[in-house]
Simulated scan of single mutants.
Amino acid sequence: MSNDSIRITVVGVGRMGFSHARLLHRLGFLDSIVEPDNATAERVSLKFKVPSFSTIEELASERKPNGVIVAVPTNIHSKVALEVVSHLPSLKGLLIEKPVASSVEQALELKSKIHGKNIKTIVGHVEVFNPVISSIIEILDKGVIGEPRSVLFQRRGAVAEARLDSIGDVYEDIGVHDFDVAMRLLPRGKLKLFSSALTLNNVGNSSIIVLTSQEGEFIVTFLMSREFAGKLRTIDIEGTKATLCANLLTQILELRSLEIARGDKEVSAIRIPFSNGEQIKVYGEPLLSELWNLVDCIRGDGEPLVTIDDGINALKLVEATRKSIETGKVIELDV
Results as ranks from 00 to 15, higher is better:
143 G>D: 01
140 L>P: 06
221 T>S: 15
161 E>I: 05
223 L>G: 03
228 F>V: 00
176 V>K: 05
193 L>M: 11
135 S>F: 02
160 A>S: 11
237 I>A: 04
224 M>R: 09
141 D>T: 01
148 P>V: 05
183 M>H: 09
199 T>I: 03
207 S>N: 04
167 I>G: 07
196 S>A: 14
186 L>F: 13
216 G>M: 02
230 G>N: 08
164 L>H: 10
228 F>R: 09
211 L>C: 00
164 L>R: 14
241 K>F: 01
177 H>R: 02
194 F>Y: 13
225 S>L: 07
162 A>N: 13
222 F>L: 06
243 T>Q: 15
207 S>A: 15
129 F>W: 06
188 R>D: 01
230 G>K: 13
206 S>R: 10
192 K>L: 14
167 I>L: 14
227 E>F: 01
222 F>R: 02
169 D>W: 07
226 R>P: 00
151 V>M: 13
215 E>K: 13
239 G>V: 02
165 D>T: 05
157 G>R: 15
219 I>W: 01
222 F>E: 07
150 S>V: 06
193 L>G: 11
230 G>D: 13
189 G>I: 05
208 I>D: 08
220 V>Q: 13
172 E>N: 06
154 Q>D: 06
153 F>A: 10
233 R>Q: 05
241 K>C: 07
200 L>V: 12
200 L>A: 11
214 Q>M: 09
152 L>A: 11
204 G>H: 09
145 I>D: 11
243 T>W: 03
174 I>K: 05
215 E>Q: 06
235 I>L: 15
143 G>F: 01
131 P>W: 11
215 E>Y: 05
201 N>H: 06
211 L>Q: 10
134 S>A: 10
244 L>Q: 09
137 I>Q: 10
215 E>P: 00
233 R>P: 00
138 E>L: 03
236 D>I: 08
167 I>Y: 04
206 S>T: 14
181 V>Q: 08
196 S>M: 11
161 E>S: 15
143 G>H: 00
155 R>H: 15
142 K>S: 07
140 L>A: 07
213 S>F: 05
156 R>L: 15
207 S>Y: 03
230 G>P: 04
131 P>Y: 13
140 L>V: 12
181 V>I: 15
223 L>N: 13
194 F>E: 07
195 S>T: 12
180 D>F: 12
214 Q>E: 10
229 A>W: 09
153 F>G: 11
195 S>C: 09
186 L>Q: 03
197 A>W: 04
177 H>G: 11
153 F>V: 05
187 P>Y: 02
146 G>A: 03
139 I>R: 01
242 A>S: 15
141 D>W: 00
158 A>W: 15
151 V>I: 14
160 A>C: 14
193 L>T: 00
163 R>L: 11
145 I>F: 04
